[in-house]
Nucleic acid binder design. Structure first.
Lengths: 199, 199
DNA sequence: TTTAATTGACCGGCTGGCCGGTCAACCGAA
DNA sequence: TTCGGTTGACCGGCCAGCCGGTCAATTAAA
């Protein structure tokens, strides 16, 4: 066997580099050369790991979604009571804006990119699946809350969609006007509003 | 008398063409040539009306914001009671997804673009100003509602931010999975949720 | 242990096509 | 003829992706 390289590790390094560069300059303005420099490798090497610039974005998107999912799992680990789960979710979500800021810039690119892609393009399906799975998770929590007598809610799916939309909308607003935003204050207010809508 | 060309009208035609093309293919994939063809003019003519492709996007953004503002003014004209204004706003917002769908695709591009721009870039300032002004309007309505005994709300600004975030988040979700979405149902559910959070 | 042979990860110079922006020519109304 | 308005052929910079070459790591024969 020839040289043994930790392919998986290097792949992740390239993704982290792409993350940094794409977040800073935007997908279309970023050059593969810049990603390579950021990763400390040659441009050609990126093509050993990814087929094309677009495919790099797709992979990066999958990578980010996985990271984010992991983050939520960690933050919500061990919480059992539905209202606490919802509260924890909202707190984790708003906290993630700060903690994973670059992600959200890249998400903007993905949104813009996916919108024009074929319905069954990978990027678009990743987006839809992630959204659906978040909704499903939330629906389960809301239903559990209803069953446990914590909530009243006729349409858990609509409630879930409403909650998720708030979070995504806030992410967008926060991104473009961080100064106008107190995340902690907002977390509290949002939690109160959501709880009241589920009263 | 020299030829009097309706500059303003042609400018608007180019903007409408840019709207169509950018919405369909995305800002970066769109060629100036395509915008020209869509507008039924030569490419060079665009540069008589706009400095550059980027400046065309800026102008388009301003144009869309103005259109949207007009749209809201029309839809809310004559409504006086704060709860009805809020309800009307939400209904108009969700209805605008369908009616102005191309706008929202272009907004994605603007978000992605503005995120990497300087803090005081025109695009970014347009975005911030539009946001702030929407918030201000909503705050006034909420405060009027509180004064009139319709609502209870300790932090009208946070409530306003929450409402606007919901709308923007829903726009995003709707754009990428229209099939999974019943806008009318969602309007009703959203209105109920918002009202409850203000009661 | 030494060293020749082999492998494949890595590199970066190159190129072809693309597209934003320019401008000299053109058009037609006055 | 004049001149504001229009045009599209053209230019030149840019960059994704390619590919032939390099060499460190590894193996195995000596």
């Amino acid at each position: 066997m020839p040289i043994v390289v930790d392919k998986e590790r290097k792949r992740a390094e390239i993704l982290e580099a792409a993350m940094t560069v794409f977040a800073r300059k935007g997908f279309h303005r970023s050059k593969m050369e810049e990603v390579a420099v950021e990763a400390g490798i040659g441009k050609g090497t990126i093509y050993e790991y990814f087929e094309s610039k677009h495919q790099l974005l797709q992979s990066l998107h999958g990578y980010m979604l996985a990271k984010l999912k992991e983050y939520y799992a960690e933050k919500l680990h061990g919480i059992e009571e539905p209202p606490r789960i919802i509260g924890g979710f909202l707190a984790a979500a708003l906290a993630s804006f700060r903690e994973w800021e670059p992600f959200f810039y890249v998400f903007c690119d993905v949104w813009a990119e996916a919108g024009r892609a074929e319905q069954q393009s990978l990027l678009r399906m990743q987006l839809r699946d992630a959204y659906k799975s978040s909704i499903d998770d939330l629906v389960l929590v809301v239903e559990a809350g209803v069953a446990g007598g914590f909530f009243h809610c006729d349409h858990p799916r609509l409630a879930a969609e409403h909650i998720l939309a708030c979070v995504d909308g806030l992410a967008l607003h926060w991104l473009y006007d961080q100064e106008a935003f107190d995340l902690d204050e907002m977390t509290e207010a949002l939690t109160r509003a959501v709880m009241r809508s589920l009263e």
